[in-house]
């Protein structure tokens, strides 16, 4: 009998079947799996208003996705390990449902891993031949407190991604600065010949924002054709904010180290 009262082998943390190392970032797969077509890899890292993390968690829950892998950042600072049922698990988890692989982080990405993780995700996406890499996130907006329904924007790289983005019927992120892993993915994607879209919703910077996540999910549904119902997300918004308070505090510290407050949506150069 284990400490938790379970028999050994019951519901334990899965043992990696395959692992690949990309410049110090380790991607585990717990089982052989095939991602159906058209294949999407969807990234939701703790960031502005935790929009990405809340969105991807909700997609996993709504689709009933199963955990098929994880990503470890072995030399992350501060040194930390996530524990589940008494065993260490990678800080970033991979969930799969049909044609969607979800990348969900349970901790903010340390600044020393922003480039490495972004590039590892892109290399893995190329190797696995994903059709589109979708990043979900928030963009801090001082007018957010006035808006019941936040606005959404897109930024994209790659011909097919641009065509898809233009069909969404929302504004592009026409001018401004993005900071963090999504910025690296967007900037470097062309080098990997990868189609990528970043979907952003106006959100609070350092307060969890499930309403902004619901806005992003509506656009994500339009993009992929997957029906993601946000009713429960909006109904439980306050409890979600309560639960995610500690993650938001940690993320705010990381964003501050990253200079995230410089992220803006307006012209950078005035002429």
């Amino acid at each position: 009998m284990s400490i938790s009262g379970e028999e050994p082998g019951e519901d334990l943390v899965p043992v990696p079947k395959r692992e690949e190392v990309y410049d110090g970032v380790v991607i585990y797969e717990y089982e052989d799996f095939v991602v159906q077509e058209p294949s999407y890899i969807v990234v939701g890292l703790p960031d502005t208003g935790l929009v990405g993390a809340i969105s991807v968690t909700h997609i996993a829950s709504e689709l009933g996705a199963i955990e098929v892998g994880g990503i470890d950042l072995p030399a992350m600072m501060p040194p930390m390990t996530l524990i589940r049922k008494g065993e260490p698990i990678p800080p970033i988890r991979l969930f799969l449902k049909d044609n969607v692989l979800l990348v969900l982080s349970e901790a903010p990405v340390p600044i020393n891993y922003v480039y490495k993780l972004s590039k590892a995700i892109m290399e893995y996406s190329v190797k696995r031949r994903f059709k589109l890499l979708v990043s979900l996130t928030g963009i801090a907006s001082p007018s957010r407190y006035r808006d019941e329904k936040p606005r959404a924007y897109w930024a994209a790289s790659g011909r097919e991604a641009l065509e898809k983005a233009l069909s969404l019927g929302i504004e592009s992120f026409d001018e401004g600065i993005l900071i963090g892993p999504y910025a690296v993915i967007l900037k470097e994607a062309s080098k990997y010949r990868l189609n990528t879209i970043v979907l952003l919703a106006e959100s609070f910077m350092d307060i969890p924002d499930p309403e902004a996540a619901a806005t992003v999910l509506k656009v994500f549904s339009d993009l992929t054709g997957l029906k993601i119902d946000t009713t429960k997300l909006l109904e439980e918004a306050e409890l979600i904010r309560l639960r995610m308070r500690e993650l938001m505090k940690q993320t705010t510290r990381t964003m501050s180290q990253m200079g995230k407050e410089l992220e803006v949506k307006h012209p950078v150069i005035y002429t």
Binding site: P142, Y145, F204, I207, P208, A237, E238, L239, R241, L242, R245
Partner: peptide, 8 residues
């Protein structure tokens, strides 16, 4: 404008 998050 100060926003204070006080869910529930």
């Amino acid at each position: 404008v100060i926003i204070v998050d006080i869910p529930v």
